[in-house]
Amino acid sequence: MEQKQYSNKWQKRFDFYDKHGAPNTPEFKTALKTASFGQRLLINMNFFAFFFGLIYFLILGLWKKGLVLLGVSLGIAILVTIIDGLTGWSFPDGVYNGLSVGISAMWAMLANYNYYLKETKGLDGWNPLEGMRMV
């Protein structure tokens, strides 16, 4: 079976995760603090996932995690709509914009490590926080 070729960006991300571990480890956090701003963005954020969310997760083959994150995103939207309906007043537009950016950031911050786990460790479950034990 032929080995998959990754772009330079993905190779840098994978090397960083191989060397420093999961995003919640002290080694990862220390290494990230010493990295340049551009390197921190490369490791922590995925701009395609920020703008395209579920579509990008589907392209990467992360459909299970994408569906879970879609459910979380829809759940937040439904909750805000219910609160609007029950209280009779609407949140200011800034709140909706902030929620939209926050949800997009969630997609962007989870894409890289989840793709790394799928491609290198074979972990392709439903949990988008897989391998990132929150302590």
Rank of each mutant, 00 (worst) to 15 (best):
T87A: 11
D18K: 11
Y6G: 06
K118F: 11
V80S: 06
E119L: 05
M132A: 04
W89L: 12
A108P: 00
K9H: 08
N114S: 13
Q39N: 14
A49M: 07
L69V: 05
S7Y: 07
G38C: 01
K19H: 03
G61K: 07
A35K: 08
S36P: 05
L74C: 10
H20Y: 15
L42N: 11
G88N: 11
F28H: 14
G98Y: 09
E2S: 09
S7Q: 11
Y17A: 04
I55Y: 13
G102M: 11
G71R: 05
M134Y: 12
S104F: 10
L42A: 10
A105N: 03
D124T: 09
D15F: 06
I78G: 01
V95C: 05
G21T: 10
S100N: 12
I82C: 07
T34W: 01
N127V: 03
V135P: 14
M1G: 12
F51C: 07
G85W: 11
L32A: 13
L67S: 06
R133P: 03
N24A: 12
G21R: 02
G131C: 08
P92S: 14
L110Q: 05
F47V: 15
L99F: 15
Q11F: 00
P26E: 15
F50D: 02
S73F: 04
L79K: 04
L42G: 06
T25Q: 07
R133S: 12
S73R: 01
G61E: 11
M109D: 06
N97P: 00
L42S: 09
G125C: 04
P128L: 08
M1Y: 06
Y116R: 01
N24V: 13
G38V: 10
